[in-house]
Design a protein around this nucleic acid. Structure first.
Length: 193
DNA sequence: CAAATGATGACCT
DNA sequence: GGTCATCATTTGG
């Protein structure tokens, strides 16, 4: 274990990779974070996915092969995904929450007045705390700026419905580490009973 | 070229 | 719990 722990096999479907990513550490420049909340998105079979209607300029990275970061902007925020599966097949895992484990000062500077446990809680906040922008779209997760490492210790995993998606939100494709203070509060999507 | 959409977040009641 | 701010991308004329 330690520094050499390998990351999960990203060539498999996002739905399989998502729970394995919990507890893994993503380093972006000088800041490192331990993932505690993710959501899986598939391609054509997933009405909530950006790739549902097929390839476009925005979601090209989802089709570009495993091990790359898919970053998109919306509502004035950035969200980042880890692209999965082989080239030509869309699948990704949205990073929704993480605990900062290194570079805390840099993360705090980007989000003044925010509690440490909330620095990377939520997709938009996570990107801001880690300094991820659209300039990182398509970057390798094993390159000079980004580095994805495996988990250092076993983690508990819980599953449930996705958050804030307009369709198919009820699918239990959201995974998180129970008890972590950096998991965003459960937010029921519109239409669920 | 113009309008609508969206995997959010912060603030108000 | 609900509303509004705010940005890029997508789609229609």
């Amino acid at each position: 274990m330690g520094a050499g722990t390998p990351a999960p096999d990203l060539s498999r479907p996002g739905l399989e990779v998502a729970p394995l990513l919990l507890g893994c550490v993503l380093r972006v420049g000088d800041v490192a974070a331990r993932l505690v909340e993710v959501e899986a998105y598939e391609g054509e079979r997933d009405p909530a996915s950006h790739a549902w209607k097929g390839p476009s300029r925005r979601n090209a990275v989802m089709f570009g092969g495993p091990g790359h970061l898919y970053v998109y902007a919306m509502h004035g925020h950035h969200c980042c995904n880890i692209a999965c599966r082989e080239e030509g097949v869309a699948s990704a895992v949205l990073l929704r929450g993480a605990e900062i484990v290194d570079g805390l000062d840099a993360a705090r500077a980007r989000r003044p007045g925010v509690a440490d446990t909330a620095l990377a809680r939520g997709p938009g906040n996570l990107c801001r705390a880690l300094g991820i922008t659209s300039a990182d779209n398509g970057a390798s997760l094993f390159g000079p700026r980004l580095l994805l490492s495996g988990r250092a210790a076993p983690v508990e995993v819980a599953a449930g419905p996705r958050v804030n998606v307009s369709r198919a939100g009820e699918w239990p494709w959201r995974f998180w580490v129970p008890g972590s203070p950096s998991v965003s509060a459960y937010k029921r999507h519109a239409g669920s009973a």
